[in-house]
């Protein structure tokens, strides 16, 4: 739903980085996207391919998405479990006293640039 907004900020961050480090061309951008970040990857890539053309430093850059599995911590039995499969309820003890450890992030891991 907010993929377009995220792409606009991503493009801006990358342009800033390029200006700071005197990079002429970014050829690949690798993002780590959490399983429960709410980002729809197909739509996200479409938005990227549309917006990158507006930025000369990015216009040929490929976007690579690496999925980060979501993990939830159960405070009742002090164990972790996969979020997507079990949701909010701990599969070991049935407790709802749980919270997400990771999986909601969207991080720029690295960029590949022309020398």
């Amino acid at each position: 739903m907010h993929e377009m907004g995220i792409i606009l900020h991503l493009a801006k961050s990358l342009e800033e980085t390029a200006a700071e480090q005197d990079i002429k061309k970014i050829t690949r951008v690798t993002l780590e996207v959490g399983e429960v970040s709410g980002i729809m990857t197909d739509y996200f890539v479409d938005c990227w391919n549309y917006f990158k053309k507006r930025h000369p430093v990015l216009d040929t850059a490929e976007l690579v998405l690496e999925t980060i599995p979501a993990v939830t911590w159960c405070d009742a039995c002090k164990r972790t479990y996969p979020t997507v499969q079990y949701g909010r309820t701990c599969p070991y003890c049935g407790s709802g006293e749980t919270w997400l450890l990771k999986g909601s992030e969207c991080v720029i891991k690295e960029i590949e640039v022309e020398d």
Binding site: E16, I23, I108
Partner: peptide, 15 residues
């Protein structure tokens, strides 16, 4: 080609 590690959130410029 060279790889630059960034490790910042996509909304870092907004933050």
């Amino acid at each position: 080609m060279k790889i630059i590690e960034l490790k910042e959130t996509v909304t870092a410029s907004n933050d």
